[in-house]
Nucleic acid binder design. Structure first.
Lengths: 179, 179
DNA sequence: TGCCAGCTGAACATAGGTGTACCGTTGTGA
DNA sequence: TCACAACGGTACACCTATGTTCAGCTGGCA
């Protein structure tokens, strides 16, 4: 029940970051009073949604073997599946102004940055900084979520799209057709 | 003068989309009354900022030879230079709800989509839809602007970062070092 | 000097979001 | 059946953003 509330709040606030608490409550099929009882202020609601997304990512991180050489592929595939909950984290305006959230986000980025740095010894190019590669990954994820949202991209195609584009780029290599 | 006002409005609204008109006026060193005289409503201001960005893109488009094989590289290099004005266009929440703006944005995208489709015969891969490639380009631009904004990326490095990443990807191809 | 145009700050009314208190309803368990 | 907790709705007070009006100030110009 409370889970459904957070999910609804995520999608409503993601579609319109200025949506009122009344809008959120109505979309969740809940009285505004009840919403206020669970989340006393708007800031509390936003923080709860963000922390929920971070919990989701944490639970995914646990399942990924960061020592493996395919850790990035695995991580991305799992993140794509999370969808809007995580998109909220990347795009909701003003989240970075919350001290607690920002440190949690940075803490979440760190192991991935370390992974990237390690893989720059082998499968990742060395002439780009790790943070740039990280942001490129995030951008790919965001593109996929957005495309899914607009109905342009099938969710099952998303991981392949993201991985292909981020790793290999959009240029046509060689003369052969790679269909 | 009015140009400076629009630039300031762009950066203020981009940093905090919920910023009040008072904030914008103060940042521009202008009275709130004056701001209201130039842009009667908040929506008018936002639309003016967006249209200004679209004008900027139009003027850039005119300088690009869309028939050339290097048109994409040229276009991206020029777009990177535009910075936050165009970033506003891609990220300000709710812009797509303005009918006039949405059609203008779509009209702006069309020639690029056509260009991508044409280049998919030669230098761009055919196993990804054109719209996906377009959004990948935009994502690269956005990453660059954000990184520049945070001071992590030198503006002069930006075009190379974007082009390299988008076209070639972040994977290390071959065993040789490509520094 | 007098006129005018543009800008400014102050003041005001309005609207909408937000947070709180209160009350009636519903459903559950003793 | 009764007690109790959870929920929904109404009503209220408060605050902020917004849009408008008005009067004063400044600088250019005839």
């Amino acid at each position: 029940m409370s889970v459904h509330l957070l999910q609804t709040a995520t999608s409503v606030l993601l579609k319109d970051p200025t949506a009122s608490l009344g809008d959120v409550a109505r979309a969740a099929g809940v009285g505004r009073t009840t919403l206020h009882k669970r989340f006393p202020t708007r800031a509390a609601l936003v923080r709860a949604v963000a922390n929920d997304a971070l919990d989701l990512i944490d639970s995914v991180s646990c399942q990924v073997d960061f020592g493996s050489d395919d850790a990035i592929e695995d991580l991305i595939t799992r993140l794509v599946a999370l969808g809007p909950r995580v998109e909220f984290l990347l795009r909701f305006p003003g989240l970075e102004r919350d001290e607690e959230l920002r440190t949690r986000i940075e803490a979440m980025d760190q192991p991935v940055l370390d992974l990237i740095t390690r893989l720059q010894g082998t499968k990742l190019r060395r002439d780009l900084p790790a943070w740039w590669i990280l942001h490129t990954l995030y951008a790919g994820l965001f593109n996929a979520w957005e495309a899914i949202n607009y109905g342009r991209l099938a969710p099952l195609d998303a991981p392949r799209f993201v991985l292909t584009t981020v790793f290999e780029g959009v240029a046509n290599v060689g003369t052969a057709d790679r269909t």
